[in-house]
Amino acid sequence: MSDNPISTALAKVEREPGVRKPDPLLVVDGVTRTFGGLTAVHVDTLEVQRGTITALIGPNGAGKTTLFNVISGFDRADTGHWTFDGQELTGRAAHRVARRGLVRTFQLTKTLSKLTVLENMKLAARHQRGERMGLSMLWPVWRGQERGIVRRADELLERFRLSHMRDEYAGTLSGGQRKLLEMARALMVEPTMIMLDEPMAGVNPALTQSLLEHITALRDEGMTVCFVEHDMDVVMGISDWVVCMAEGSIVAEGPPQSVAKNPAVIDAYLGRQHDEPENEG
């Protein structure tokens, strides 16, 4: 990722924690979140450049998921505020955040087991008139729209190699397939920015490469991607920018190569014994 326009835009940006970006989509200011005596998140400034792939790394318990939760409205912050695309997002309910175009996935996947894979996808579509109680009985009102939604869902399923599971219950998918479905489902919302919490965990290595290509393709289509990942090869491979958290704070950020060499990052990882990717069912 050395000579695309994105890297050029970020080339002149200083490599220090909390640095301002030329065209930030997400701006986080002074956000803290404590659980009892534990400060899980303490982020002074964090800006995510529009149209980039930003990796959020850090050892277990660094506060990455908690930061995601706060920004996406699934948890509340004790202090601080944050804006998305210039609009205040502080304290907004989770569904409003998603409607604004910031959609997240979960570290522990939340696929809906008793819905089919296709239904999971259809659920995520926006502006379906049939989702209003008053119109739900009048199928002619929403049937046409539904067809368009199915077409879009099928395209995404094809792209994520889930077409063969289309009509199976999502509960029958493997852990890796659930990760894929959750990501495809998030894309059905047509977000401007997607936040992925460990999207590669448990995904079959053969599929990881194509998933990385999808993420890069999304970025090239103009989407902003922020993802948490433990696998350094993945991070180095596709990120335009890397942010490293440790003990709730941002300790380093910069282009992948510079962060890998940053002593603060090495300290953060060596301070605790850790370098394996998270595994889950």
Partner: peptide
């Protein structure tokens, strides 16, 4: 939570 994350109230 899955439903919320997809923008439904």
């Amino acid at each position: 939570d899955a439903v919320r994350s997809l923008g439904k109230s």
